[in-house]
């Protein structure tokens, strides 16, 4: 892979990693981000590689651990951080927080109830397909989400309708704190996915070049075959499930896993490689720029205002109609009391 491409990926990857670490550090002493936040430290690599393939009309529909994908879709950091602070300048004006973070201008959406977004991808991809747009819907789920029934309805429909979807399953082996082996006897996603006649690709490598190559293969397959692909990506979050706390200290639930993954950090690996093939100065420059972006976003969010409460109430149902509706007809009162009713048949 050429040096410039690796640098571009590193720029995104560092922005994700640093933003997570910085927010984790200030979350508690400050106590101003009062919402559940699922940090994605350790799981940045696939989102970073994906950033190099995305165009604006592609959709990303992500699970709750979404910040990496938000950043890979080039959504603004200022608005992400302000959203965590619950401010009007946030991407969702403070109404969604981290768990339902979205940025509609760039077709990025996320949500926390497991598997919903995985399934909503059917619709965006269906519209892309039937109106001949050459875009892809990317949807991200975790190994926990894969246990919901709607997932299998979705795989069936995606295959049946040959939809341009890249299903990404970030398998970090834990559903909150529960290991996958305690949740299922059949953790073999390959078998499940292939049973729906969907192409399955496994990414178990941690080096960026390998991840990038397999991602490229998946995207090319979707484009040339107009069919979905499912990627299972082995990864490990190196932060707690939710919030800034290191929940391994309290729960001690994955000591061996963390030990195993200590030497498989894609971020550190890429950084080392770039220093070797490029120079430390250019890496420092990328990092410095990212650090400024994140710190300035925090400062702006701290100073920002909160949304007016009455305005927030109006967002529930906005009474607007298509421009096909020029006016409303008056009610009719032709209908009288001598109406016959339907006599049902046995079936």
């Amino acid at each position: 892979m050429n040096k410039n491409l690796l640098k571009k990926i590193y720029q995104i990857m560092h922005l994700i990693r640093f933003s997570q670490e910085h927010l984790i550090n200030i979350y508690h002493p400050e106590d101003k981000m009062k919402c559940p936040i699922h940090f994605c430290k350790g799981q940045e690599a696939l989102a970073s590689c994906l950033s190099q393939f995305l165009v604006k009309d592609d959709y990303i529909l992500s699970h709750h651990r979404s910040h990496g994908y938000y950043i890979s879709k080039k959504c603004p950091i200022d608005q992400m951080v302000a959203e965590f602070y619950g401010k009007r300048s946030g991407s969702n004006e403070g109404l969604a927080g981290s768990q339902e973070l979205s940025y509609s201008k760039n077709n990025f959406y996320s949500g926390t109830i497991l598997s919903g977004m995985f399934s909503i991808a059917l619709g965006t991809a269906y519209v892309q397909k039937i109106y001949n747009k050459r875009n892809i819907t990317y949807t991200v789920i975790g190994d926990g989400g894969m246990e919901e029934g709607i997932v299998y309805e979705t795989l069936n429909l995606a295959s049946l309708k040959s939809l341009p979807i890249l299903f990404i399953c970030e398998n970090n082996r834990y559903s909150v704190h529960t290991n996958i082996n305690e949740r299922t006897k059949s953790s073999n996603f390959k078998k499940k996915v292939e049973s729906f006649d969907i192409k399955y690709i496994k990414i178990s490598e941690y080096e960026i070049e390998s991840i990038f190559k397999k991602l490229k293969e998946a995207i090319q397959y979707i484009k040339s075959n107009a069919k979905p692909v499912f990627i299972e990506y082995d990864t490990m979050r190196t932060c707690g499930h939710v919030g800034p706390e290191d929940d391994d200290k309290e729960h001690d639930y994955r000591k061996l896993d963390l030990l195993k993954w200590k030497n498989k950090d894609s971020f550190i690996d890429l950084r080392k490689k770039l220093i070797r093939i490029s120079n430390i100065k250019s890496i420092n420059l990328i990092e410095k720029r990212n650090i400024n972006i994140v710190k300035s976003a925090v400062t702006k969010a701290q100073k920002a205002k909160t949304l007016n409460f009455n305005t927030s109430l109006k967002y529930n149902l906005i009474k607007k109609f298509s421009n096909k509706v020029k006016s409303f007809a008056k009610p009719s009162i032709d209908f009288k009391s001598n109406q016959k009713t339907t006599k049902l048949n046995p079936y």
Binding site: Y59, L61, S119, G123, L157
Partner: peptide, 13 residues
């Protein structure tokens, strides 16, 4: 469930 989700996605786009 998935059909409703599909409608959500269609409407979104």
């Amino acid at each position: 469930s998935a059909l409703t989700a599909m409608g959500t996605g269609m409407a979104l786009s």
